[in-house]
């Protein structure tokens, strides 16, 4: 008598009501942030372990970035027939922002696949791993930024007070990378091909995005205008090359962060409970 009644109230496959799931997802976001010692310490440790017993340690990142910058700067300043003094700072800042965003997107795809062992041992907020990914890439960004700063100094680039806008630009870029990263991490856990797809797409995306070249002709400018990755790079590069993004670009980036976070949150709320079953 009792059992069928209970079944009507809670059918066997019923998921929790939607508001409950959204607040659980928000709780995950907040708990993950609150556990900063975990993502801060483990993010730093990952960098240390990646470069252990290599002599220079994490400075290898800076060194390889410096070599890349010198090689590309030397060749492309001639290929494009432009003045290295203005080209190299543009290239340095573009590569800096691009490497940060691209690494983050690539690594996000396998975030939960690599975290599977830990996730099956402990009940931890799923976003801890996302924050850890962002933190690790911010540290690597800082190491490369020192090289970019040296390149700017060598080229005697003039930097005005508007250069400070690069900091809110980086913050806005990071927020956007967080929601895209969360979506990629969820997609990557369910569809293991996602990582391959992103890996194949990123080099192409770099070539069609103004990182090495400038959108000089009207056709190229139109191509750039509809490329979100161009705006992502410009958030950091623009202010430091004396051309901060227009107010509309800031509004667009902020709008994308808000709308994207909302979409990612809804999907996260729906899929968070399924995640462990995929791993």
């Amino acid at each position: 008598m009792n059992a069928p009644a209970a079944r009507t109230m809670a059918p066997p496959n019923a998921a929790p009501p939607v508001p409950g799931r959204v607040s659980a997802a928000l709780g995950d976001l907040a708990d993950g942030a609150r556990q900063w010692p975990q993502w801060f310490t483990l993010g730093n440790l990952e960098i240390r372990l990646r470069f252990r017993r290599t002599g220079l340690g994490p400075l290898w990142t800076s060194l390889s970035f410096a070599v890349l910058l010198a090689a590309l700067g030397f060749v492309y300043a001639r290929v494009l027939a432009v003045d290295p003094r203005t080209y190299v700072p543009y290239l340095a800042l573009g590569l800096l922002a691009w490497n940060f965003a691209a690494t983050m997107l690539q690594e996000a795809c396998e975030l939960y696949i690599h975290a599977a062992h830990t996730l099956k041992q402990l009940c931890v907020p799923k976003t801890v791993f996302l924050y850890r990914l962002l933190w690790r890439n911010l540290v690597l960004l800082a190491l490369n930024a020192a090289v970019a700063a040296a390149a700017l100094a060598l080229c005697r680039a003039r930097i005005g007070p508007s250069a400070l806008l690069a900091l809110p630009g980086l913050a806005l870029l990071s927020l956007n990378l967080l929601w895209v990263g969360l979506l990629l991490a969820l997609a990557g856990a369910r569809f293991w091909a996602a990582s391959r797809a992103v890996q194949a797409a990123l080099p192409i995306a770099m070539l069609v995005t103004p990182v090495i070249w400038r959108p000089g002709t009207p056709a190229l400018a139109a191509l750039a205008r509809w490329n979100p990755l161009y705006w992502a790079v410009e958030l950091v590069r623009g202010p430091l090359t004396g051309a901060p993004p227009a107010p509309l670009a800031w509004a667009g980036a902020a709008g994308a962060a808000l709308a994207g976070t909302a979409v990612a949150l809804i999907l996260f709320a729906r899929l968070r409970e399924r995640l462990l079953y995929w791993l």
């Binding site: 809670a10 066997p12 496959n13 019923a14 099956k120 402990l122 462990l276 079953y277």
Partner: peptide, 14 residues
């Protein structure tokens, strides 16, 4: 054990 720990949310039940 993993259900009690909160690692696997139940497919059904509470």
């Amino acid at each position: 054990l993993r259900v009690i720990a909160g690692i696997y949310p139940p497919s059904s039940g509470t």
